[in-house]
Simulated scan of single mutants.
Amino acid sequence: MNIKKTTAIFLSMSLLITTPVFSKEPQKPVQTTSMQTLTKIDATAQKSLNKIYQVFPELKNYHIGMIQKGTGKHGYGVEQWDITFTKEKKKLNTPQGDASVEIEVSTGEILNVNFQDKQLAPLPHNQAEQQAKDFLQKFIGNESKQYIVQRFEDNTLGTTGGTSVVFSKKMQPNETFKTISVRLGANVGVRAFARGHTELGDLTGNQLNRQEIQSALNKLYKVYPEAKQLEVVRANRGKRDVGFLVKYESTQLWVQEKGKNGFFGFVEYDLSGNLLSLSKSETSPPIEKPLPENKAKEKAAVLVKDLYEKNWGDYAFSHVETKPFKNKDSITKVYFKHVNIPKKELEIVFNGDGSVVSVTNFEKK
């Protein structure tokens, strides 16, 4: 069975580079307003609230303690209703209660339903998946057919507990990548529904061209020949500002194998199409014995030629580092220096079986 792990386990530098971190560059102004406290909701929101009451009948026994209306406060980027409920009848001065609901004003779309539970018991993932799928079919109807299970999260930190099933919908020509999270507890069922927020810089399918997508996929196929029918499900473009690295702008793609759940991997390239980083989201079971340095150096040299093609001569071998670990993958890192840019390096990381953990091209300040 594959064991999911991010390259952050092995490589803090790769994590910083591949995590969308944006500089404080001027952005298009976002229209925001403070949340206005009101005494009632409109007919569109009431229709949505009635739907919530049907699926969560216990909420009918709660009392509305606060109603607010505003834009952009919670990351959805739309004008929305925030309704806070309490078990005891009382008016609130802050939106802190026993349950909450968020509804988009213009469409009535339900954005979030959440019960403030404490220490819910987790569920086996197969049970959580089936219950979450049944819930979504009942709650959002045919829309649920567009989503697939991406991952499971056992909430062991904080006070909520339970198991969350995260569903995803790949980006469409006119839509960005979307997620829905459903949190459940053993013997109590669904306790939260949340649509994901659109991240700054997320792209629609029409904002990418086929040539750049195919070029990125080809690089992944070269590094991971076992990959089958990769497709881009999420894309993001923006300026990255990582503390010890030169500020840069890039496009990031997350890919899946058709018909499978979860991300297969990730690839990032600059505005000229030059590879900055790539990695695989899953690796084989841990191998404690690291890949020998001579084999790692040989495999890395081949990858540099395959990935950078006519520009491979810009990189000269620098050194090899080995990191042994117990009970998890031991890794071997191979470094190359850019011959014309002294602070620019290329790092290729291997597992003990010779598989590639990540490729990272970075330039220090």
Rank of each mutant, 00 (worst) to 15 (best):
Y53E: 10
K60H: 09
Y224M: 04
K69L: 14
N112M: 08
F152K: 08
V334D: 10
D117R: 15
G141T: 04
S14A: 15
L16M: 12
I331Q: 00
T7F: 03
R237H: 06
T71W: 05
N361Y: 06
L120Q: 05
G77H: 00
Q54W: 08
Y76D: 09
I17A: 12
L157E: 07
F244A: 00
G243N: 00
Y269K: 15
T204L: 00
Q96E: 11
P57A: 08
E309I: 15
M1R: 06
F350K: 03
Y335P: 04
I41R: 07
Q229A: 12
K333I: 05
H74I: 10
K60F: 10
E109K: 15
V320H: 02
I110E: 05
Q68F: 08
E88D: 12
A128C: 06
L15F: 07
T160A: 14
K170C: 15
F336R: 14
N261G: 11
A235M: 13
F152W: 09
V149F: 05
V30S: 12
S272T: 09
F152I: 07
K239L: 01
P95R: 15
F325Q: 13
Y62S: 11
P124D: 10
R237C: 02
V190G: 12
A227K: 01
S215A: 15
D353G: 04
F56G: 07
V223F: 03
